[in-house]
Amino acid sequence: MSSHWSGVYPAVTTQFREDEWVDVEATLSHVNALIDAGVHGLIMLGTVGENCSLDAGEKVDVLKATVDLVDGRMPVLTGVAEYTTSLACKFSQAAQDAGVDGLMLLPAMVYKSDARETISHFRTVASAVDLPIMCYNNPVSYSIDITPEMFDEMSDEPKFVAIKESSENPRRITDIFNRCGQRYTLLCGVDDLVLESLILGAQGWVSGLVNAFPAENRLLWDLAQAGQWDEALKVYRWYTPLLHLDTHPKLVQYIKLANVECGYGSEVVRAPRLPISGVERAAVLKTIRDAIATRPTGPPVQSDTALAS
């Protein structure tokens, strides 16, 4: 199946009103800001989008509104994180009907499936839709590891076109290339490993902090694509304390707080998540505000290709 997802793809936050109802209008406002900043595609309802906190109807409402807003200007993907394979198939079909361009598929939630069960889950969902699929590997958060050997075994399914690699082990980029060649498009899914991953051959970046710092994400991406590694390293070193916020269990709260500090949306989350407070809040705010005070303006990127991407 033809699809090539490269560049900066935000895992977009879902906005809520103070009463925790989904605020579709505010979510779309944020999507517009990300598009204006030059992202290459959108992933709705990922971990950062609080997928598992929304019911099926709310998810479809968000997807339909986003697809209508984007109107074909860039790919719109949705996270698929359901408790059973049948529910994942049902939601994937609803997402296809809503007009999304692809799925970001996770293993089934809660139950820790073994390799045979995980592969069966992925194949069954693929058979239920006619969409390209980004396979999301995040053993750190979800305790299921999709190994290079498993991706090799699944390579006969043409709907599996990409891998979001979030194992926090950059060796995996090389291991997947060595095992599977150019079969999959590889995207970095861990913000504070992105430069390492790009050097090793990743072709895209699914990012959380891009929600608050979209221009800086795009700057780092363009510098790397232009081969301006010294300048990219300067931006990365400035950015890394912020990017560490993406690898914490409270990444949703941290990223939404960063959004507010940068003028995007609200920090309302849906319980059982709660906005952070006290010493923890003060520490995260210091990281965010220090970064805002020293944010790079960025040198001109010399590559015409990078600027046009």
Rank of each mutant, 00 (worst) to 15 (best):
F122G: 04
T124Q: 14
R116P: 01
I119R: 15
G99F: 06
L77F: 12
Q93V: 14
G102W: 02
T47D: 08
G49W: 02
K90D: 14
A65N: 05
L54N: 01
A65H: 02
L106V: 13
V80R: 05
T47R: 09
D55R: 03
K59A: 02
F91P: 04
L106H: 14
R123F: 12
V110S: 12
D61H: 05
N51L: 07
V60T: 08
A108Y: 10
A128D: 11
G102C: 03
D114H: 10
V110Q: 10
V80I: 15
V60N: 04
V70C: 02
S120G: 11
G46Y: 04
A108L: 12
S127Q: 15
Q96F: 08
A56K: 09
L63S: 06
A56H: 10
L105I: 12
K64F: 00
L131K: 12
R116A: 15
G72C: 08
Q96V: 13
V60K: 03
T85Y: 13
K112D: 14
C89D: 09
A88V: 05
V62Y: 00
A88H: 03
V62T: 03
M74C: 10
V80S: 06
L63I: 08
C89M: 15
A128V: 08
A94P: 06
T47V: 10
R123Y: 13
H121I: 09
A128N: 10
G99T: 07
I119W: 08
L69G: 00
G99M: 05
S86C: 06
T66K: 09
A98F: 04
E50W: 03
Y111D: 11
M74E: 06
G79W: 06
V80Q: 09
A94Y: 08
A56Y: 04
I133K: 03
G72R: 02
